[in-house]
Amino acid sequence: MKPLLEVKNLFQHFKISRRFTVKAVNGVSFEIYPGETYGLVGESGSGKTTIGRSIIRLYDPTGGEIFFNGSKISGKLDAATNKMLRKNMQMIFQDPMSSLNPRKKISDIIGEGLDIQGLYSDLKQRNEIISEILKKVGLSPAHAERYPQQFSGGQRQRVGIARALVMNPKLIIADECISALDVSVQAQVVNLMKDIQAETKCAYLFIAHDLSMVKYISDRIGVLHKGYLVETGTTEEIFSNPVHPYTKSLLSAVPLTNPVIEKKRKLVSFDASNFNYENQKLRQISGSHFVIGD
């Protein structure tokens, strides 16, 4: 099967001043296949959000290539590719409180993409599309006339999902989309995302730091540290046989809901200063399991 998204040797650097450059992402490569969920994990500052934003072209990548749906989407975009990219790749943001425009009605927030791309023939059809999508995410069509502040956090995140989904995208980038929500609401949103995937066969790039949730939802996982992809493989491979010391340390920090074991759990310490990832390549452990270094 051909990958839906191919990221090859992606670099994303931010020049702060003449002397200082933040090297957020350094030579990251991975691919996402149609209909699968790829989880990106790592501590804060590891570059997971930056990768998501580079892929959807909120940033201009410093180096490397990105292929999506058969066309190259890094470098200068021509009008046709840009249109294809905007329609087929969508993002769900972290904070449902600040990612929805408070002065717009829900129908206009969801309909904005449709308006820009001209995806309906008359107003009636626009309303139909919006009601349908609202029903799909578990809200009622009557909610279309409301404003974001009239919703609870979980409902707002549903609006965020509806906004992404209305374009019928092939890839959705979900950037920490459940970390601002309550445990019980997290479960509702994750179930919704899984249902939608089963129905529309869209792929997810699921960015999160909650490893038990990542394990639950992802088919494959990439572990990031200091802007380098240090280990990648299927969920099974990463969780049952972590190879890189950073991955081990990350897994050892996952809290378990089992008090007797949790109270005895030892944190595997990881000293980042001993690791220099520069110029190191991924090597194969087995099947689709790769780890950085020798």
């Binding site: 019980s184 479960a187 038990s212 996952v254």
Partner: peptide
């Protein structure tokens, strides 16, 4: 409900 809503590993 609270316990079930959180996936364990």
């Amino acid at each position: 409900g609270l316990l079930s809503a959180m996936p364990d590993l």
